[in-house]
Nucleic acid binder design. Structure first.
Lengths: 211, 211
DNA sequence: CGCTACGCTTAACACTGTTAACTCCTGACC
DNA sequence: GGTCAGGAGTTAACAGTGTTAAGCGTAGCG
């Protein structure tokens, strides 16, 4: 009886242990600098043991990526709870996205920069795919609410959400990938991007104080 | 006498041959799927010959990247010649950037997505670094001209240029890296991003026809 | 002719992800 | 209690990677 449950639990525990080790190494040493043997060494098992719990290295990455997206999703949920109105919810969400990426560059890299490679089978990264959708829903919801509230002109919510994501992803990934570029002060840059974007969407009547 | 010149020329020719083979393979099979041995096989030399002309694989990538940036820079130069006014020059430039990335995804990937990795010595990618600056100068120039011409409000040209680059890089790289994402029609998306951005920068007085 | 310099190759090293074959132990059944 | 099955974990190996050290062979010079 209960022996099976115990075994299953132990198996699950080891799986989590592998995942923790992998995430830790990926983040601190970079995905491509971490070998299966290094992960194995960290958890003090043989390399092949990992393959009893994960299909391959990409599968491991997929699972780590899912956890990262969950973390990001929780931030958005928290903002949704506390933001007083649609516009600040949207603004805070966009800022939080960029700041998340800057604060955890390697997490971000795993989730958005190297998870989806060209020349790889498209049926990969199943886990993080659905989690990614869930995260994007927050953005879509925020934009939709802004339109409903009359903050934005009536516009294509889907296209606008995608455009906003693209813009903030661009800034985040450039800050991560090109740290040596002579960027202006980070807050200034973020503010410049967000204000340009949002000013371009706002209903003129909604904010007469706009100079 | 002249034998040295001939030898130098032959050396240069082989170097270019390696570069051509490498670029071709990188673009068609993806950088990480191309080994030094594959490149060597293509040019019918031994793998170690490559090391007589390039420091290592990353150096090869750097050179390919430089060529790509030159190609992009030539596009911008062409636009500069033909565009009738600053605003259309800027718009066309931004569009051209995105379309370049979409048309040559692997070139773009090499130049902007995997050239600058974290965890790599910062003194790498020397060549493409300066070429990248030259390319960015076009954008900065366009934005500056728009401000001068009164199309844009007086604004921080540097920060705005960087924000614009970030936004279009974001869209370009997402379209490349996440082709399976349910994107809206591409032209709609590009237009949505650009119009939101530029509307947010324009001097209200400059375009009274704005609805 | 002898020699040197250099272009190029062979062989090797220390890795990589991944698989097949094997061991060994534990729990279940007769 | 003895036998057997299953499965967790191992070792050994394969085919490949980037890169380097050592050696070969020839072309050009004195």
């Amino acid at each position: 009886m209960g022996v099976q449950e115990r075994r299953a639990r132990e198996k699950q525990e080891l799986r989590q242990e592998i995942l923790d080790a992998a995430r830790d190494l990926f983040i601190h040493e970079g995905f491509e600098n971490v070998s299966m043997r290094k992960i194995a060494e960290k958890i003090e098992y043989s390399p092949t043991t990992i393959y009893l719990h994960f299909q391959d290295k990409a599968d491991l990455l997929d699972c780590v990526c899912e956890e990262t997206l969950e973390k990001l999703e929780r931030r958005f949920s928290a903002i949704r709870e506390t933001a007083p109105d649609p516009q600040t919810r949207l603004t805070q969400g966009l800022r939080a996205y960029i700041e998340f990426g800057v604060a955890y560059p390697n997490d971000y890299r795993i989730a958005f920069l190297l998870q989806f490679k060209p020349f790889s089978e498209p049926d990969r990264c199943v886990r993080c795919h659905s989690m990614g959708q869930k995260t994007f829903d927050h953005l879509r919801g925020s934009v939709g609410d802004c339109v409903q509230a009359g903050v934005f002109e009536p516009l294509d919510v889907e296209a606008t959400s995608q455009a906003l994501w693209a813009a903030i992803h661009g800034l985040t990934s450039l800050l991560i990938l090109h740290p040596s570029f002579p960027w202006v002060e980070q807050d200034v840059l973020i503010h410049r991007l967000l204000s340009a974007l949002l000013d371009g969407l706002k209903c003129p009547a909604a904010d007469p104080a706009r100079k």
